Amino acid sequence: MDDLNRCGWCVGDPLYEAYHDEEWGVPVLDDETLFKFLTLETFQAGLSWITVLRKRQNFREAFDHFDYRKIATYDETKIAELMDNAGIIRNQMKIRAAVTNAAAFMKVQDEFGSFSKYIWQFVDYQPIQNDIPYYKEAPATTELSDQISKDLKKRGFKFVGSTVIYAHMQATGMVNDHQVDCFRYKPVQDLAKKMQQS
Rank of each mutant, 00 (worst) to 15 (best):
A86V: 00
Y166T: 01
R54W: 08
E76T: 05
K117I: 06
H168P: 15
N101L: 05
V108E: 15
V28D: 10
K107T: 00
L191S: 08
C10G: 09
F157V: 09
N101W: 07
K107V: 00
I88W: 07
V26I: 09
P127L: 00
I95M: 12
T73E: 12
D3L: 12
K194F: 03
N130K: 03
F63K: 13
L40S: 02
R54A: 05
Y16Q: 07
H168F: 11
H65Y: 04
P27T: 14
A97T: 03
V164M: 01
K70S: 13
I71D: 09
I88Y: 04
G113Q: 04
D3M: 12
A86W: 14
H20K: 13
E137K: 06
E81C: 15
A97N: 10
N58P: 08
L191T: 00
Q92P: 08
F159E: 04
L4A: 06
P139F: 01
F66G: 12
A103Y: 15
S145R: 02
I132D: 00
G12M: 13
K107L: 04
R96M: 07
A140V: 05
A80S: 00
L47W: 03
C7T: 11
L40H: 02
T100L: 02
L29Q: 04
A18T: 06
Q44V: 03
W24A: 07
Y185W: 05
D13L: 15
L15N: 01
Q121I: 04
L40E: 08
N58I: 15
V180Q: 14
Q126T: 07
D21M: 07
V180S: 06
G12D: 08
Q57N: 09
R96H: 00
A97D: 08
I79L: 02
F157Q: 10
A98N: 12
W120E: 05
L191D: 11
T163L: 01
K94N: 12
Y16L: 13
V11E: 01
Q197H: 12
T39A: 12
A62N: 05
S145T: 13
G113H: 09
Y166E: 12
G87I: 08
A138T: 02
D21V: 01
K194L: 03
R6P: 15
F112A: 14
A167P: 01
H178S: 02
H168E: 10
R96S: 06
D177N: 09
F112I: 05
I50M: 06
D31C: 13
E143A: 15
D110Y: 02
T51Q: 08
E137D: 01
V99E: 10
F122T: 13
Y74I: 09
S149A: 14
K36D: 15
A45T: 01
I165Y: 11
H20P: 11
T33V: 14
F59C: 07
E76Y: 07
M93N: 04
Y68E: 11
E81H: 13
V52Y: 06
F43H: 05
T39V: 04
K78D: 14
K117W: 11
K36P: 04
D190N: 15
Y135Q: 04
V11T: 00
